[in-house]
């Protein structure tokens, strides 16, 4: 079986060489030290690129710009960012523009990188499976054009849960969204949990500061319990580490700071609903519940011997495959 194709982009050749060496046992690694060249690789449809990992700061183009372009060309390819800077601006860009799956800091841990790639490939395969079934659906619908938009009809049942906003702020967002969605405001995590159990919530828009409990931890737990919920952070508190956690552990859809344009906000919520619908349509795969623990274990990495063992095992697997061949 052919190894999955991946692309790594970094202006530092030594990084490329190292990452490539690390991954080449499991993947066919394409690499480029120039984002423009990388774009031509992305456009090349001879390979099915499953994962792209880019550096953020490169001459000529930012990583998040490259990933945005990549999304246009290959929407299902999983995007990762590997960066030596953890300045807030790049983080916000990476989530809001690049829509990345993971934000990985330099210096990286080999095990983390391997795990993230495995997970990313798994996610990609699931997305593609979904996509092909969708295509099938679509072709069916083409034959029946009258029923093309059944989702719009049941618009009333779509629920947005807003957590931690003052009544005044909520009233504003409510007026923006009420024409299409059922918007609910809660002030505490307990209320949020109650509503999640009662209602079919698809999108959460959350503030960060909700009193004593760490909102992020709460949202991550929610994500595990309700994997189809898509989360948008809309908060003035911006913190680099927090944002990185929101991306990597919560898979936050957008990380926004007010003020935000009403139309933009509405269209973002629309997009979040589409994303949630995608998740719902593949309930058999409990993606986020499982990969969370994988990443966590890779993050902890206390026993290096096990890393080594797994590395060896990976190598041995390859050997045994060859042998079997």
């Amino acid at each position: 079986m052919e190894k999955p194709h991946i692309l790594i982009v970094d202006d530092e050749p030594l990084v490329l060489a190292s990452v490539s060496d690390l991954l080449e046992f499991e993947y066919t690694v394409h690499q480029s030290d120039n984002p423009h060249e990388a774009l031509s690789i992305i456009k090349d449809d001879r390979y099915e690129l499953k994962v792209i990992m880019s550096d953020q700061r490169m001459p000529g183009m930012y990583g998040h710009e490259l990933l945005r372009e990549a999304k246009k060309i290959r929407p299902n390819t999983i995007r990762l960012l590997l960066t030596g800077y953890s300045d807030l601006e790049s983080i916000m860009y990476s989530v809001n523009v690049g829509e990345i799956f993971r934000y990985i800091n330099k210096p990286w841990k080999s095990e983390t990188l391997l795990n993230v790639f495995r997970l990313a490939v798994k996610l990609y395969d699931q997305m593609m499976a979904l996509d092909t079934s969708k295509h099938a659906k679509k072709s069916l619908q083409k034959e029946l054009p009258e029923q093309e938009q059944p989702e719009e009809v049941k618009a009333e049942t779509k629920t947005v849960l807003m957590i931690g906003y003052s009544d005044k702020v909520f009233d504003h967002y409510h007026s923006v969204l009420k024409s299409k969605y059922n918007v609910v405001n809660v002030h505490t995590t307990q209320e949020a949990l109650d509503d999640l159990k009662k209602m079919d919530v698809s999108v959460i828009v959350s503030e960060i500061n909700l009193g004593i409990t760490s909102t992020l931890d709460f949202l991550i737990k929610i994500k595990q319990g309700f994997p189809n919920v898509v989360t948008i952070m809309l908060t003035k508190s911006i913190d680099a580490n927090f944002a990185i956690r929101a991306i990597n552990d919560l898979n936050v859809f957008r990380y926004l700071t007010p003020p935000i344009d009403d139309d933009e906000f509405r269209s973002l919520v629309d997009e979040a609903f589409r994303r949630s619908d995608e998740f719902k349509s593949k309930t058999r795969l409990d993606l986020f519940r499982s990969h969370k623990s994988e990443v966590e274990s890779s993050n902890s990495l206390h026993n290096k011997s096990s890393d080594l063992r797994s590395n060896l095992k990976a190598a041995q697997d390859i050997l045994s495959k060859k042998k079997g061949y």
Binding site: L14, V15, S18, V19, D21, L22, P107, W108, S110, E111
Partner: peptide, 14 residues
């Protein structure tokens, strides 16, 4: 620092 440190660490693992 992060860039060389990153690939040195990675290289050591490799």
């Amino acid at each position: 620092v992060n860039t060389p440190l990153g690939f040195i660490k990675s290289n050591v693992d490799i």
